[in-house]
């Protein structure tokens, strides 16, 4: 890539010197102007092409080769067929679907809490700080904290026991564990969305709220008919960022809290990639899984861009 662009520049220059003989200075200036953008762009283009696109192409190419005895041999779509046949990978994909389904909850929580802060419930200044606090903790620390809290003989179950409710194996029950992990993820990250919501509230027309109050609207009515429509763009933005967060940054929590278990029920594609490459010594299969994850992210990303664009047009 680098060599190509160099020789292209070299080839272009003699061609122009052979052109009509006008003022040397003019020609030099125009050549400089033509080349300047190329030179200025070169570092960025080279970094993107050399450190992003080229490894991506290599990775995709690698996913069509074999592992173990077939190392380096082209195997066509074998790895992708293996993925489709692997119940663990299917669980990982199903969990991605579950994350998408849980997205409205993950957006509604910071939205509601931001509304309360905006409506100045008693102690709202304190809550603003407290809610944001977990966002500065690393997933590993959050995971370790909740490992202790959610342990079978941990404080959370002790609390339930005090209320006469039998203990729940939060991280050991395959039907519960994924919800526990997502719940912790939401707890750990909603502070950022809350801040975005508060920024959105700052642009809210207070006369509308006053009018609603004068008309005797209840709190749910105010939220539904005044706040939500006014904040539609903020809500869409939070949807997009929360989705990206859920799909790309849950590895740490899964790793620390459940190791993908119990029974593989909390596998996510990233975790699957890591296990196949690091533990099972199947880098080509891991590449195929990464490519699949990349395609999913591409589809989700494009959908989100189109949503954002539509939201922009409405304005």
């Amino acid at each position: 890539m680098a060599a190509q662009s160099l020789s292209a520049v070299d080839a272009a220059v003699p061609a122009s010197t052979a052109g009509a003989a006008s003022s040397r200075r003019n020609r030099r200036g125009s050549r400089a102007e033509r080349l300047a953008p190329l030179v200025l762009l070169a570092p960025a283009v080279l970094v993107i092409a050399g450190l992003r696109l080229w490894p991506l192409v290599l990775g995709i190419n690698f996913s069509f080769t074999g592992d173990g005895d077939r190392n380096g041999l082209a195997v066509g779509f074998d790895n992708y067929l293996t993925l489709l046949g692997d119940p663990l990978f299917r669980t990982a994909l199903r969990n991605v679907g579950l994350l998408v389904l849980l997205l409205p909850v993950a957006v509604a929580i910071p939205g509601l809490l931001a509304t309360f802060i905006f409506l100045k419930v008693p102690g709202h200044r304190l809550y603003r700080g407290v809610y944001f606090f977990p966002a500065v903790l690393s997933p590993v620390i959050v995971g370790a904290i909740f490992n202790l809290l959610l342990a079978f003989d941990g404080p959370f179950n002790a609390l339930l026991g005090g209320l006469g409710i039998p203990p729940v194996d939060w991280l050991g029950d395959p039907d519960v564990a994924i919800f526990a992990v997502v719940g912790v993820h939401v707890w750990a990250t909603f502070g950022m969305a809350l801040v975005v919501f508060l920024a959105g509230f700052a642009t809210l027309d207070s006369s509308l709220l006053d009018a609603a109050k004068v008309d005797g609207a209840s709190l749910p009515q105010t939220i539904w008919h005044v706040i939500v429509p006014s904040l539609s763009r903020t809500i869409q933005f939070v949807f997009v960022t929360t989705m990206i967060g859920m799909l790309t940054s849950m590895f740490g929590l899964v790793y620390v809290m459940t190791s993908g278990g119990p029974e593989g029920s909390t596998y996510l594609p990233e975790y699957y990639v890591w296990i196949q490459q690091g533990q099972m010594n199947q880098p080509a299969l891991a590449s195929a899984a990464s490519t699949a994850l990349f395609l999913i992210m591409l589809v989700v990303g494009l959908a989100q861009i189109s949503i954002l664009r539509r939201a922009g047009k409405e304005d």
Binding site: A151, F152, P167
Partner: peptide, 8 residues
């Protein structure tokens, strides 16, 4: 011991 599946 209790909760074996969630105990490391």
């Amino acid at each position: 011991t209790d909760g074996a599946n969630s105990t490391a």
